[in-house]
């Protein structure tokens, strides 16, 4: 099925090889395809996160597009400032502004600036790569850490489910909201391509498996991310001006019998070691409710 598609993807790489990312990092793969879709007429802004590290240190960077590093809480505001300056210069139609932040920088410390930027209808793409904890500082829990996951600050497993950032962003009434996943690079590519052509605030939330943080062998990255989709835990969809559209890769999981058991996903990661039966039941309920809602939105 990828036969045609794979050749349609921009061949040029926008990240030079030899970055500081861990082997098997899904974020590096996500970023690779996001930048391919965005192209050279882009300005990035990045808060404190693993992506700061990908961009390289002092004096030397890794990407073929400019990046403005910005403090943790400011990503949405930083992007707004770049957009305002480009508007003043009459360059806003030519250059795309893209904010790229981790889950902590998005759902926790950066949510205010992001909400403000979205409310103002700022013409930019905000991408959250979600590795479900503060990985860059050593795997502390974030608001996006899922229930039952062990982190260095939830040694007994997190008690609460992850914050539903997609609903929060959708409630802002922005132009585009989408989920994505590092194991589906062509889907990522298409979504960024689409977002780039739209006016207004575009939000893309990408699940980003993390070998050291989640506890699995780096070679398993794609498999783990795929399981999140195959179990129905992480449906791929987009909401274009309020209209819900289930992405190709997730369509078949409308049928519950097609979904793999959630334990396949949880059991493959050390962070869920010893997860309780109650937590697993909560996951099952969560997934069922999630898909009931998706089904309603599609039928509607």
């Amino acid at each position: 099925m990828n036969l045609v598609k794979v050749m349609d993807v921009q061949e040029e790489e926008y990240i030079y090889p030899g970055t500081r990312m861990c082997a098997g990092c899904a974020m590096a793969l996500i970023y690779r395809f996001a930048l391919k879709a965005l192209g050279p007429k882009t300005i990035l802004t990045v808060p404190a996160s693993c992506l700061t590290v990908l961009h390289g240190m002092q004096g030397f960077c890794t990407t073929k597009v400019s990046v403005l590093h910005t403090p943790f809480a400011t990503t949405g505001a930083s992007a707004s400032g770049i957009v305002a300056s480009l508007e003043e210069k009459g360059l806003n139609n030519e250059i795309c502004v893209v904010a790229f932040a981790g889950d902590g920088g998005t759902v926790d410390i950066g949510i205010q600036a992001l909400s403000g930027a979205a409310e103002r209808g700022t013409d930019f793409i905000y991408a959250c790569y979600d590795n479900e904890a503060y990985m860059n500082t050593g795997v502390q829990r974030s608001g996006a850490t899922p229930q039952g996951a062990h982190t260095t600050t939830t040694p007994g497993g997190k008690m609460k489910p992850k914050k539903n950032m997609l609903k929060i962003m959708e409630a802002h009434g922005i132009a585009y909201v989408a989920t994505a996943n590092g194991s589906y690079p062509i889907d990522i590519y298409e979504k960024f391509k689409k977002a780039r052509t739209m006016i207004g605030t575009k939000y893309i939330h990408i699940l980003s498996p993390c070998p050291p943080g989640w506890g699995y062998d780096p070679k398993e990255t794609i498999k783990i991310g795929r399981l999140a989709v195959e179990t129905g835990f992480w449906p791929l969809y987009e909401i274009i001006n309020g209209k819900f559209n289930l992405s190709r890769e997730s369509k078949k999981y409308l049928d519950p019998s097609k979904r793999k058991p959630i334990i396949d996903y949880l059991g493959a990661q050390k962070r869920f070691k010893g997860i309780s039966d109650e937590d697993i039941e909560d996951y099952k309920t969560y997934i069922n409710n999630l898909w009931d809602e998706i089904k309603k939105r599609i039928d509607h």
């Binding site: 403090p71 809480a73 505001a77 300056s85």
Partner: peptide, 13 residues
């Protein structure tokens, strides 16, 4: 906080 951050970004642009 956002005002100052946006000022910094606009200035850098």
């Amino acid at each position: 906080h956002s005002a100052a951050a946006a000022c910094c970004a606009a200035s850098a642009t």
